[in-house]
Design a protein around this nucleic acid. Structure first.
Lengths: 213, 213
DNA sequence: GACTCACGTTACCGCTAGTAACACGCACGT
DNA sequence: ACGTGCGTGTTACTAGCGGTAACGTGAGTC
């Protein structure tokens, strides 16, 4: 009895929690990452303390919110990464998946990448602790895939992790810039980035004439 | 006379401004990016309204503060980029310069990369507008250097810009991760990243056995 | 009918960014 | 010599934020 009753309550609580998250989602989508707790509570039709009872603090709510989108995006990326195709094709598909996602919902992307900060009270100075968790997770996932599928010889694990985070950062920064300026099509961007990863920078020759021409 | 008098005042104002910036620098170095205007004013030995008279709002102060460090770092990077050496050597030197800088002053780095946000009142939804300006500037600079010195054939300008931002992002993300976990020495990180840019990912073979081993 | 307990509220605290209004000092014109 | 601006600085304030304590209130239970 005790257990069933508890599960009943827990289900109710979970449903409420999901409703609150969806309301928060709507507000963040509308107001950007600096959406206030008041606004979120109002959108959900309740008041602040309930939010705090469910999520602890603003950081908790944002973390829960971010986890949903992050998981969704990572699923898409995994599908592209694990497809049975040539490596270059997989790389291009993954880049394109990511860029299509941030292109489709820029606000969500901005929220995930610039979560302002979690808790203004605690200020642990660990660099990167407040940094976007999405980038870290993507980097780790990519590192795992690289290590699993690419033969890198000795020191492969460490190399794979460096590359995972590096490639993700490349994708992110180029995507951020591209989203702001739109200097080319998505396909062109994907091709350019893949070319970079394929060593075209090293293969290209020096420009003649030195500085001046 | 009028001009000399004005310059006199302007010099005084500039000196004051520099003093304020140095005080703000100290506070940000100590309290992180969420240093309050009150704290900065107290450190400078004055009160808030003076800060606002000099810098407009918090965003203005942070922009001025960031510009100093950004300019300094960019100068170092330019020196490494323009050195008369082989391309690979220059790339490694540049990576190392950047990583050494963020290693030496993590707080400054964090402040430059995560400027919270400038103006909470205005919320224009341009993605990337609030993003770290340092990354953008580094990306543009690197793009220029690539375009000037590397022969990329047709479409070189656009390609150079994509690569500039992409490489900077790679450097940034890998540096951020490395600074947090310190999984290897700086030299190893530099070498791994340079290897990535040199196409070692494309050159490596598939791992045998498929998924499972 | 009294008790419990989760759900929800109002009203508050301490903090922040930012501003209006007032006060001192110093060079200036008449 | 005496106002008069004007730059420099202050105090005291507003509006809004994250977060919390204390207070209803209605449903199920003995």
């Amino acid at each position: 009895m005790d257990t069933t009753q508890r599960t009943e309550q827990q289900r109710s609580a979970d449903r409420r929690r999901r409703e609150l998250l969806e309301a928060a989602d709507r507000v963040v989508l509308r107001d950007g990452p600096q959406a206030s707790m008041n606004a979120i509570a109002a959108e959900a039709g309740i008041t602040k303390p309930i939010l705090y009872r469910h999520f602890g603090d603003k950081g908790g709510l944002y973390a829960a919110l971010a986890k949903r989108h992050t998981d969704a995006l990572l699923d898409s990326l995994r599908a592209a990464l694990d497809a049975p195709a040539e490596r270059r094709e997989r790389v291009e598909a993954t880049l394109d998946t990511y860029l299509a996602a941030i292109e489709a919902r820029p606000q969500v992307y901005r929220f995930l990448m610039h979560p302002s900060d979690g808790s203004p009270g605690e200020q642990g100075f660990d660099v990167g602790k407040h940094s976007a968790p999405l980038l870290r997770r993507m980097g780790e996932e990519l590192a795992q895939v690289i290590e699993d599928r690419v033969d890198l010889g000795p020191g492969s694990q460490q190399l794979a992790r460096v590359w995972g985070h590096g490639i993700v950062g490349m994708m992110h920064a180029a995507g951020d810039w591209w989203l702001g300026e739109r200097p080319c099509t998505r396909a062109e961007l994907v091709r350019s980035l893949a070319d970079l990863l394929w060593g075209r920078l090293a293969a290209a020759g020096d420009k003649l004439g030195g500085p001046g021409v």
